[in-house]
């Protein structure tokens, strides 16, 4: 067995394990009772999605996903968890007859998307391209969304702080 063949095998196995990691993390995040374990599942899923972005040809997005989501959003959620922790609060409800709705919606969406995709040709494939034009695009072609998202983030931070300071009016 040649080295190259072995390398391709490892590559494919890594991709498959990433898919498994994403699904396991997602199931952990919605099925477990203790919120901290669900949070761990979320972290696992997010790291898996970062790996998926790398396989889609964008190491920049993979690093950004880890930096923004796992490094910042997950830490914020963990802080929120520790600040709103109340022992013994039941976090999960048995699905019941309404449990059929999410799989139904998902399958409907998936079916329609696959139907639409069957009529289109795949133009590209995942390849590592030079991502330095992204900076120029952000400040040139996509300047308006860039400024809008900076305003959005500022407003969100100010809003979160002012909301968290609301006290009950006596």
């Amino acid at each position: 067995m040649s080295f190259e063949r072995f390398a391709l095998d490892i590559y494919a196995l890594t991709f498959a394990s990433l898919l498994v990691q994403i699904v396991v993390g997602a199931v952990m995040a919605v099925m477990l009772k203790k919120l901290v374990h669900c949070f761990l599942g979320l972290v696992i899923t997010m790291v898996g999605v970062a790996g998926l972005y790398y396989f889609l040809g964008s190491p920049l997005l993979a690093v950004m996903q880890i930096m923004i989501y796992v490094g910042a959003v997950c830490v914020a959620i963990a802080f929120g968890l520790s600040l709103t922790h109340k022992a013994g609060e039941e976090g999960l409800q048995a699905p019941g007859p309404r449990g059929i709705v999410p799989p139904f919606i998902t399958l409907a969406m998936l079916g329609s998307v696959l139907l639409g995709l069957s009529r289109r040709e795949w133009v590209g494939y995942p390849q590592k391209i030079d991502e330095s034009p992204i900076g120029m695009m952000l400040l040139g072609e996509y300047l308006l969304p860039f400024e809008v998202i900076s305003i959005l983030l500022t407003v969100a931070v100010i809003g979160a702080i002012s909301v968290a300071l609301i006290k009950r009016r006596r």
Binding site: P59, V70, V75, A78
Partner: peptide
């Protein structure tokens, strides 16, 4: 890595997660 420094920064942020857990 083209984005070596960015990777180092991103992984440095994970330290806080470990400490909180």
């Amino acid at each position: 890595l083209d984005i070596g420094l960015l990777l180092v920064i991103a992984l440095g942020l994970l330290n806080t997660l470990g400490i909180l857990l």
